[in-house]
């Protein structure tokens, strides 16, 4: 019904000339971006550059004023809402870690588990042994085995970030949009998170927004610099970080 997409698309996500204005302020300004299937992409840029707004636009939370947003070459994402887009295989982690606080770690993963989202099914749903196993496995991957029965509210900030990443993994989307995953983490945790995302990117496409340069370096991937709602520079971290325009934006003021 939704997916008229091709089997082997050229680009997974394609943004062209996207603009979004909030009260006369252009948060996104003629933004163009092309993510290939299977790619790991880092997006950096100063606060207010429009990174989160870009993710809002891709995931259906915000409608752009202008421009194309295409998934797998043909699906026009601006015509769908969050639930549709999530079910097409685009998963998202928020900048502020967002988990269901009054449910346990395990229940959070149970809810996110790939599968039918229908009302009737949810009333009579029973986890299969295989699904139980998958949940345990993901709890292990994000290092929350000891906390699996705890309420998500009782996790530390960093643990919530991981839980949310775990929820993304178990949702099994084709592409993960990950907004500042290392926020509130210690240096070790930050590096572990980078490793985790690299592992995930072997099987999924991943777009990561992050400020932490060590983190981006550890990802070792193509980098896009966003500034005032458009792309300022693109390339590997070395090229980008020696670009005079980038240096000016980051250090000039």
């Amino acid at each position: 019904m939704i997916l008229e997409a091709k089997e082997n698309p050229q680009s997974l996500l394609y943004l062209n000339g996207v603009t979004k204005t909030f009260d006369g302020f252009k948060a996104i300004n003629n933004l163009s971006l092309d993510i290939a299937p299977g790619e790991l992409r880092a997006i950096i840029g100063p606060n207010g550059a429009g990174k989160s707004t870009m993710m809002d636009i891709i995931t259906g939370k915000t409608r752009p004023d202008e421009g194309e947003v295409k998934y797998k070459d043909v699906v026009d994402l601006t015509r769908f809402d969050e639930a549709d887009i999530a079910n097409m295989g685009i998963g998202r982690k928020f900048q502020k870690p967002t988990v269901v606080e009054s449910l346990s770690v395990r229940d959070n993963l149970d809810l996110s588990l790939a599968g039918n989202r229908g009302i009737w099914q949810s009333l009579f749903f029973k986890l299969t042994g295989q699904q139980q196993q998958r949940i345990d496995e993901v709890i292990g991957i994000v290092g929350l085995t000891e906390k699996s029965g705890d309420l998500a509210a009782n996790l530390s900030h960093g643990q919530k970030q991981w839980l949310e990443i775990g929820m993304l993994i178990i949702q099994d989307p084709e592409v993960l949009l990950v907004d500042e995953p290392a926020g509130g983490m210690t240096d070790t945790e930050t590096m572990e998170t980078a490793e985790l995302l690299k592992t995930i990117s072997k099987q999924h496409s991943v777009i990561v927004v992050e400020h932490d340069m060590d983190f981006v370096r550890a990802l070792d991937c193509h980098v896009t610099v966003l500034h005032e709602g458009s792309v300022l520079a693109e390339g590997n971290l070395e090229t980008v970080s020696t670009n005079p325009k980038v240096i000016e934006v980051y250090l000039g003021r």
Partner: peptide
């Protein structure tokens, strides 16, 4: 039921629930 957990998810984190793919309004 899982339906009940979805309700709690909507209460605690409505947009997270949408991004999980649940039709919150339904």
């Amino acid at each position: 039921s899982k339906f009940g957990k979805v309700l709690i998810a909507i209460r605690d984190a409505e947009s997270r629930t949408r991004f999980m793919g649940y039709r919150v309004e339904h």
